[in-house]
Design a protein around this nucleic acid. Structure first.
Length: 389
DNA sequence: TCTTCTGACACCTTTGAAGAGT
DNA sequence: AACTCTTCAAAGGTGTCAGAAG
């Protein structure tokens, strides 16, 4: 039983947030190749009302706030920044380097590059977590992210097929330790040079641009694990290391139906979007009390830990020795911790595109080109993949 | 001794089946 | 017979905590 809200319709609980550069509506005709895997928007629409309120009801509520609506009503400055402009490589767009950023509050919710806009829909909650130093729990069986990555896309070619892939890459070459109230670098990582990074293709990939743009794209299904023998398709990370999710928008070549023998080429039109506010520390146990409180306050599944007043469990967890005033103080945002980060070289990393129970691997070479393949029992989905970073 | 990890636990929400009512 | 609504059990997500492991 799953909460069906990976493709979230605009209607429902979410306010209608105008986009910075909405594309002109173009009539769409679903391709025959999507008959089995195409999002069932009608079905999704009926479930989204519930689903959105489930997985991120706080997100949606905060979206209603003036603060959150602002970037949509008044589009933030369009940020066009390109890395690796070399031909045959994809474009990587990041709002700003988190190391050099003065504070999380300035991170834009919308990134635009070559006419393609990606909005981090739950930007408000991401910023709240970012200001405290987001932590994500890793478990052996896999733990969902919270907040999770939820995007709204605009500017895609409505009639073109795109694949959306989320990868989570190391954002720092260090291993960290929690020292009383802050994260401190604790030596270089031992893993990343030969580490295995997986990428998570969205369940409905590939899909028409019009379909991607007509709904919210959520990667709520993504689970994080520290189990390196994981066969469930979860994202394998190292605890006490810092990571950042990246969204890859990969146009599918016209007329090219991916097969095992005909891999899809990720050419220069592919774009990677990185929102610095989504950076997080992978942990097995929460270290920062403020993060714990934010999770409890915002994640509906943790409602049982909220300070409702009549929760016997909470009374055991938080005995009266800690006064409400003290706890309130603890919950106040701390000064932005001084961060020590560097741009790291991802050369030599291996990236595995996830297809549960189906092994496949993508190698990233030093020249930032990459190849990958995955099998699928669904003939309409990518079965092979070649990417250029 | 300290840090990190693991598994059990209680509590929560959602889903879907089953039944009743219209 | 078809549809809608309610109830309830099951599944799965959540943070906490004690103990294990290194």
């Amino acid at each position: 039983m799953e909460v069906n809200h990976e493709l979230e319709e605009e209607e429902g609980n979410l306010p209608d947030v105008p986009l910075a550069d909405p594309p002109a509506p173009v009539p769409t005709s679903p391709p025959s190749c999507l008959t089995t895997e195409k999002p069932n928007f009608a079905t999704d629409a009926t479930t989204e009302g519930k689903a959105i309120s489930v997985a991120s009801n706080e997100c949606s509520s905060t979206l209603s706030s003036p603060a959150e609506a602002k970037p949509a009503v008044t589009p933030p400055p369009i940020l066009e920044q390109t890395f690796d402009q070399t031909p045959a490589t994809s474009q990587i767009l990041s709002a700003t380097d988190p190391v050099k950023s003065p504070g999380a509050k300035d991170f834009p919710a919308v990134l635009t590059f070559k006419g393609v806009s990606v909005t981090l829909e739950n930007n408000t909650i991401w910023k709240q977590f970012c200001q405290c130093g987001t932590e994500m729990i890793l478990t052996k069986q896999g733990r969902r992210m919270f907040p999770y990555c939820r995007y709204r896309l605009a500017g895609l070619d409505p009639n073109r097929m795109y694949s959306l892939v989320l990868s989570i890459v190391p954002s720092s070459p260090f291993r960290y330790r929690w020292n009383t109230s802050r994260w401190e670098a604790n030596g270089p990582t031992e893993h990343q040079s030969q580490g295995l990074i997986r990428a998570f293709p969205h369940h409905y990939s590939p899909c028409l641009g019009s379909d991607w743009m007509s709904c919210l794209v959520s990667f709520y299904k993504l689970k994080l694990t520290n189990c390196f023998q994981d066969q469930e398709g979860h994202m394998i990370l190292h605890s006490m290391h810092r990571y950042i999710p990246r969204l890859h928008i990969i146009p599918v070549l016209d007329g090219a139906t991916p097969t095992v023998d005909k891999p899809v080429v990720m050419g220069p039109e592919s774009i990677t979007f990185t929102f610095p506010q989504t950076e997080f520390m992978a942990v097995t146990t929460y270290q920062n009390f403020r993060i714990t409180q934010l999770k409890i306050n915002h994640n509906p599944f943790a409602k049982g830990f909220r300070e409702d007043g009549n929760n016997s469990r909470l009374q055991r967890i938080h005995p009266p020795a800690v006064s409400p005033e003290t706890r309130t103080k603890l919950l106040k945002p701390a000064e932005p911790a001084e961060q020590q980060e560097e741009v790291m070289d991802l050369s030599g990393l291996e990236i595995e595109f996830l297809r549960p129970n189906q092994g496949c691997r993508l190698e990233v070479s030093g020249c930032l080109s990459a190849t990958a393949s995955f099998n699928s029992d669904t003939p309409n989905q990518h079965t092979n993949f070649i990417a250029c970073w």
